[in-house]
Design a protein around this nucleic acid. Structure first.
Length: 584
DNA sequence: ATAGGGTTAG
């Protein structure tokens, strides 16, 4: 039989039994002598979803003198497997073999597959070694291979090397740009990602679906709605909007920028096939905006559309109940997971512990942590500690703190919470002890940071920050706000201040919080704009309780909607109340 | 000939 025909047969294998039949046929017909057909079959067996890597390895072992492509098939299989790091040992064996045989040599594909393994196994040292190999073997001009290398640097978080490589690459195409933009967007360099995206536009480099997905992701991170809208506009102009990845990224962008209704509009008008991620993104979108009923309605629609919810769907639904305090609903969802074939993971536990704890069921939350079959991670105890603070339960707080100390967690927030609980009861001696602990343990403090987009740039504020060029005006604005909200009945939440100092000093310690500075600046900037323009602020930590009260007053007195994205959810202040209904 | 870049998550 002709080789071309056999090749077609390999391509037509869609079950494992096809592969096995073909393999036996090859054996009897002597086709395994043909290195071309052999490596094609090996590749199919090693990487296709219905294949079997261990069988591929068995076949490989029986090859007396494996050639380059036989090795490549196995390395490719391991790179795509659940143990990508095993690809490295195969790569090393191949290198060794190649040094003593003229039948196999490390080529561009070998490097490409091994780099894929580096990206998946998060191994930056191997990435650098491969980089050296690529240079030594004169493969640097290969644009595809260089992009794979760039991607591996990106995924390993080495954005400096990724960027340097990008600058040095002799040939770049759209995929090279995409790899770097995606790396920057997910590596806490979303701003640079958008800069690069805009550079693509000005340099006239063609953008595609992958480009806009990465750029939209950067907007989601930043909450950069203006740029997000621009990209969405481009998506529509360039007819990229029927791609499901693009849709999902767009929905997520509108959600994370605070416009969940707009996100739903995009979701609702999406006529081509939704993926499970589309559904999950929308459920999570409503969940973090506190719209639990809409989130859960969509969660139930999964069933009506005969779509099996996955682990993220459950997490999103649990998140919805968590932010709305729907304890019974949440518990029943949690308990139904295992029956529906989805085992709860650490994040599901995190959600449920928070749900119960926040609702004041501290004992139940504690018991769930203790009943877990896996080792509970520190976040669960942190969550219980946070709930203990809300419900002023010293005993449970001490249990949780003790666990955290045992686990060697040195997070300033935990110490602050504990000291908060003592402070709320006037136990200043205990407060002092916790403070001393913080000193001796050299706990690192994450500073609160809020930022706001105005006139196309991002303005950042820390607590009591005076670095903004308009800081005097901002502080004057805060004085004005304080005066007006006092008339509206505001009383400072001085119980939130940790130090044993006078009331007036406590109030002063609160009033220049980063989120207040950002909101005050935002109010100044939208003064001329219509009432429908909200002030949108993003904070890296959770919003402070006093700021929460203040923003409710502001939204009423200044007739201005304020949208705050904190570390875990959105707060929308309107007409004197917040979308979280004071439950957070 | 065979290879590269993408979405949701406490």
């Amino acid at each position: 039989m002709a080789r071309v025909y056999m090749e077609t047969l390999i391509e037509r294998c869609v079950t494992f039994s096809h592969i096995k039949q073909l393999h036996s046929h090859f054996l009897t017909a002597g086709h395994l002598q043909s290195s071309f057909l052999r490596s094609r079959l090996l590749d199919r067996c090693a990487v296709s979803p219905f294949g079997d890597l261990s069988v591929a390895v068995q076949i490989f072992r029986r090859i007396p003198k494996p050639l380059t492509n036989d090795w490549n098939a196995i390395i490719r299989g391991y790179a795509a497997s659940s143990q990508p790091s095993l690809a490295f040992s195969w790569y090393r064996s191949m290198l060794w073999q190649a040094s003593s045989s003229s039948l196999c040599r490390v080529d561009a594909l070998t490097c490409s597959f091994t780099l894929k393994a580096c990206a998946r196994a998060l191994c930056s040292s191997a990435t650098a070694q491969l980089h050296a190999q690529i240079n030594r073997r004169g493969l640097f001009a290969d644009a595809l291979l260089c992009t794979t290398l760039l991607d591996s640097y990106s995924k390993n978080g080495d954005l400096i090397s990724a960027h340097k490589l990008f600058d040095e690459m002799p040939v770049r195409d759209v995929a090279s740009w995409n790899a770097l933009i995606a790396g920057l967007a997910s590596g806490n360099k979303a701003h640079e990602a958008l800069e690069l995206y805009k550079l693509m536009e000005t340099e006239g480099v063609g953008r595609n679906e992958v480009t806009v997905v990465a750029a939209l992701g950067a907007c989601s991170h930043l909450g950069a709605i203006k740029e997000g809208e621009n990209i969405h506009g481009y998506v529509q102009d360039a007819n990229l909007d029927q791609n499901v990845f693009v849709k999902n990224a767009t929905i997520d962008m509108y959600t994370k920028c605070g416009f969940v209704d707009k996100a739903f509009q995009v979701f609702d008008q999406f006529t081509s096939k939704k993926s499970i991620v589309t559904w999950n993104t929308m459920i999570m979108g409503f969940a973090v905006h506190g719209e639990a009923h809409k989130a859960l309605e969509i969660f139930q629609k999964l069933e009506h559309n005969s779509i099996k919810p996955d682990d993220v769907s459950y997490l999103a639904a649990l998140t919805a109940t968590r932010h709305a305090g729907l304890v019974e609903y949440g518990t029943s969802i949690f308990n139904s997971m295992a029956c529906n074939g989805v085992e709860p993971n650490m994040k599901h536990y995190g959600c449920v512990v928070d749900l119960l704890g926040r609702a004041g069921k501290l004992r139940e939350a504690h018991d769930i942590i203790c009943s877990m079959s896996m080792l509970p991670d520190p976040i669960l105890w942190q969550s219980l500690l946070g709930a203990s603070e809300i419900h002023k339960n010293v005993e449970m707080a001490e249990i949780a703190s003790k666990k955290l100390i045992e686990l060697g967690v040195n997070n300033d927030g935990d110490f602050v919470l504990l000291s908060n609980i003592y402070a709320a009861q006037g136990r200043w001696k205990d407060v002092g002890r916790v403070r001393d602990d913080m000193e001796t343990k050299q706990v690192k403090k994450i500073p609160g940071l809020s930022y706001i987009e105005a006139e196309g740039t991002i303005h950042k504020f820390y607590n009591s920050d005076k670095s903004h060029e308009q800081w005097r005006k901002i502080y004057e604005k805060i004085d004005e706000i304080r005066f007006k909200i006092r008339e509206d009945g505001y009383v400072a939440q001085t119980g939130l201040v940790l130090h044993d100092i006078g009331e007036e000093e406590k109030e002063n310690a609160l009033c220049y919080h980063s989120e207040k500075l950002a909101v005050a600046y935002g109010l100044m900037m939208v003064e001329g704009a219509g009432e429908e323009t909200p002030v949108r602020v993003i904070k890296n930590l959770r919003i402070c309780g006093d700021c929460h009260v203040v923003f409710k007053h502001i939204s009423k007195i200044y007739k201005r909607e304020i949208i705050v994205r904190d570390r875990v959810r959105f707060h929308r202040f309107k007409d004197g109340s917040c979308s979280c209904k004071d439950y957070w």
